[in-house]
């Protein structure tokens, strides 16, 4: 999915939801921000730093963010190893890793799961581990790509609670891509609507859902859009 006219800014400490139909370019946008792909033109600034540059520069920026996908994308090993992976990559000492992983498993409500192989986890548990893996590195920016679309309502609310807590307690800035409008309403202070690779409208959550300026936004949030 190609993006164009995708000017968008996220403020420190806020939760921004990117809504739009499937295939609109939400995932592409998140991968661009996570520096997994490079824009052919344009600029991505992270904390006022230009993100373009060599691998090393991008890696140091990438290590200040975390990404959670719709699919947990866990590695075939234990829960502990998965959650600890980001810290190991960053060269954390083992004792610190142990402590942080323990705390993080408590945060996602899965204390005692350390030695479980991830293959034995339920979908909800696996996604909470993926979230724990993302949060344990204490990122400045958390990128969520449809993080709950495969989950049952109970796990959806658990995940949302964790994200909300991370945002309020640790001031983690969150960008949430979702086609679940209710989730956007529940979590986000600001919302951007993306369609066909273009950011149609961006504004406070209330404005977007109650007084959209653009006709296309209005049809989408009303559920009248056919795509």
């Amino acid at each position: 999915m190609a993006l164009r006219n995708a000017s968008l800014s996220v403020n420190k400490g806020e939760i921004l939801a990117i809504i739009g139909p499937s295939g609109a370019g939400k995932t592409t946008l998140l991968r661009l921000v996570n520096l997994l792909i490079q824009p052919t033109s344009g600029l991505i600034l992270f904390n006022d730093v230009n993100t373009s540059g060599d691998d090393k520069h991008q890696r140091s920026l990438r290590r200040q963010m975390s990404l959670v996908l719709q699919y947990p994308a866990l590695f075939d090993t234990t829960v502990f190893n998965n959650v600890a992976l980001g810290l190991k990559i960053r060269g954390c000492p083992e004792t610190v890793i142990k402590e942080k992983v323990d705390n993080m498993l408590a945060v996602v409500g899965l204390s005692g799961f350390e030695k479980r192989m991830v293959k034995t986890l339920s979908g909800g548990e696996a996604q909470r581990i993926a979230l724990a893996r993302a949060l344990v590195t204490e990122p400045k920016l958390l990128l969520l790509d449809e993080p709950t679309s495969n989950l049952d309502p109970k796990n959806v609310s658990i995940i949302e609670d964790i994200v909300r807590a991370a945002n309020t307690k640790s001031q983690v800035t969150v960008v949430l891509a979702t086609h679940n409008l209710n989730q956007a309403k529940r979590l986000a202070q600001r919302v951007a609507f993306i369609l066909d690779g273009e950011i149609v409208e961006e504004g406070a959550s209330k404005e977007i859902f109650e007084q959209p300026k653009d006709e296309r936004t209005a049809t989408y949030v009303d559920g009248r859009m056919i795509y």
């Binding site: 991968r31 996570n34 997994l36 691998d55 890696r59 990438r62 290590r63 975390s66 990404l67 996908l69 699919y71 994308a73 590695f75 075939d76 090993t77 992976l85 980001g86 990559i89 960053r90 893996r133 590195t137």
Partner: peptide
């Protein structure tokens, strides 16, 4: 190895050598 896992290794901040190790382990 699932391409999403390869990308996840990079996303977690792995340098090229770490990425190779993670993928070989997988």
């Amino acid at each position: 190895v699932d391409a999403r896992l390869k990308e996840m290794a990079v996303s977690l901040g792995a340098d090229p050598l770490q990425e190779v190790r993670i993928i070989l382990r997988e």
